[in-house]
Design a protein around this nucleic acid. Structure first.
Lengths: 236, 236
DNA sequence: TAATTTAAAAATCTCGAGAAAACGTATTGA
DNA sequence: TCAATACGTTTTCTCGAGATTTTTAAATTA
């Protein structure tokens, strides 16, 4: 998640309660269980997540790094609010950074990278087959994230990848918040496949164009939803 | 610093001890008082900064967001290590993002923005005159940061500005770490002035080129320093 | 001597309780 | 009726002390 995380292998098993709470909270925010703008009362939440108040505060502090939580001095923590404007910003910034990272990745990536990419695409495709059930959905989300991650894995810029990781989770949250409104209508599988082919052909221009369209598409589909619907889960 | 900070007016007076400790620690890391890679023992530091252990841990957690501190589960906190490679990455990423932000700012900025820019440049120039003393140096650093901030202030992307804020502090740390090795030889004033003129003339291409050169110059001057010198302050 | 084991020391991580601030409600007055 | 004030409740913020884990150092053995 954060840059130290990527560096230190943070993504292994959680070793401390702080990290467990951090992950549980992050999942709940991205899934929408904790609604945008909702107040995060430490005294209540510490029981839900089975940790002490100090520990929970620390986990919440870490989530500020991911911009999933905001805090105002002496007024506690809140889930970051959402807005169409913000999602637009996230989308445009992501297009800009991710296309650049993809170009670098395509330019530098070796055979091992290609192999990883094909593997990630295959695992994603497998997850697309079994469409039913909440677990299957979680699995698809995870593999989709990894596919995007592997696409830019050969990009040498740790900072670019760090920022993109933050933006990806942000975008995932928006995607999920709007999901109960609209089932996935697009042929995402075809988009991913075209992306894979372009990457392997080392056609950076085409790959970047496909990626940009891929990312923008999600935004457009959500943008089309009437704003009243989006604000149904109130910002507390 | 973090995106909530920008949003919530975090930059006013510190309202909690956590925030005071956060700022003091951030300053000490950027200035180099706390050396790269140095272990940050909570039990020791809590006395230095006059806060409890839990409070200090929370402040350190916030610094992870800025990538000035890293943590390994069960093995405490450390000041983020430095490397020439990392500084190169920071520089290139910053060039990419800041040029884009500047273009947008120039395209959108109105008269008020221009006025702010002229004002920021003027304050910076004033600070350049009185070159002596540690306070004068601090003042110059602050005004230099604000000048760069105002340059891109009209850019509508909060995320771009958020990432740039992080990168700016990172770059400032590198600049200061190498400062005792080399006094500022370049005519930075002239660079800033040219930048200002290009911005006001709304010449986005020229402004972006000047900005890129401006940022890259600092990297080159540090890159030229033999690596033994840079590693003089060991990474613990 | 070098490697392994053991034990002491230090540091991290965690929790619960107390002070300060913010919030909500009821009361008062115009 | 509305605004302002005062009070009580809730919540945040903060600290110190105890349980695990890591680190350091010494002792033992091959």
């Amino acid at each position: 998640m954060n840059i130290s995380a990527a560096a230190e292998g943070f993504s292994a098993e959680p070793k401390t309660l702080v990290e467990s709470a951090y992950r549980a909270l992050r999942r709940d925010i991205i899934e929408g269980t904790l609604a945008p703008g909702e107040k995060l009362r430490v005294e209540h939440l510490k029981d839900n997540y089975g940790v002490g108040a100090g520990t929970l505060r620390e986990a919440l502090s870490l989530l500020i790094a991911d911009a999933l939580v905001v805090s105002q001095g002496q007024r506690g923590f809140r889930v970051s609010p959402v807005s169409l404007e913000d999602f637009g910003d996230i989308t445009r910034t992501r297009v800009m950074l991710e296309c650049e990272a993809l170009r670098q990745s395509i330019a530098i990536g070796d055979d091992a990278w290609e192999a990883n990419l094909v593997g990630a695409f295959h695992r994603l495709a497998k997850a697309e087959e079994k469409r039913i059930g909440s677990d299957a959905r979680e699995e698809w989300e995870e593999r989709n994230r990894i596919f995007h991650e592997v696409l830019i894995a050969a990009c040498p810029s740790r900072w670019l990848k760090h920022f993109l990781s933050i933006l990806y989770y942000q975008a995932e949250r928006y995607r999920r918040l709007s999901l109960y409104l609209q089932p996935i209508p697009r042929d995402i599988h075809a988009e991913h496949e075209a992306l894979l082919q372009a990457a392997i052909k080392r056609d950076a221009d085409q790959a970047a164009a496909l990626l940009a369209e891929h990312i923008l598409m999600t935004f457009r589909s959500i943008e089309a939803i009437p704003s009243e619907e989006l604000n149904r889960k109130p910002a507390a």
